[in-house]
């Protein structure tokens, strides 16, 4: 019984590693930059009282914030605004949403994450909103 469990665990772990390697995604910070500025910043500036520059937070703060996936102080999810459904809902008024309509959600989220981490106040290139 114990032997079979070990076998199953080894097989599962091995395949999981292969799976992770096979689907490793190399985030595109430039695509994240366009989406962040054209969608996130555009909406924040127009409806949420002002934009939030990547350089307003540190890398660890961004990491924690994105990990928590809480938008508007927990009222909704961050990932919701990266979802294909959300992009479809605004693509008639937003060119970035239209251009990236078919980008997988996880990839686009990673792109945005790469941009804000790079642009964080302690990041490689602290970035403003525009």
């Amino acid at each position: 019984m114990e032997k079979s469990h070990i076998f199953a665990t080894v097989i599962t772990t091995g395949l999981l590693c292969v799976s992770t390697l096979a689907s490793a995604y190399d985030a595109d910070w430039k695509r994240g930059r366009v989406y962040y500025r054209s969608v996130c910043t555009a909406c924040h500036a127009a409806q949420a009282g002002g934009s939030i520059a990547p350089s307003t937070m540190s890398k660890s703060q961004w990491g924690t914030y994105l990990q928590a996936d809480k938008h508007a102080k927990g009222k909704d999810s961050m990932k919701q605004y990266v979802s294909k459904a959300y992009r479809a809902s605004i693509k008639s008024q937003n060119k970035a949403a239209e251009k990236f309509a078919d980008v997988p959600e996880d990839e686009l989220f990673e792109d945005i994450k790469a941009f804000v981490i790079k642009g964080a106040k302690d990041g490689d290139s602290p970035a403003s909103c525009s």
């Binding site: 079979s4 097989i11 599962t12 395949l15 999981l16 799976s19």
Partner: peptide, 15 residues
């Protein structure tokens, strides 16, 4: 064992 292998196949497939 069946569930472990099944789970692994499901996870690895997209890759």
């Amino acid at each position: 064992r069946f569930f472990a292998v099944l789970a692994a196949i499901v996870l690895v497939l997209p890759g």
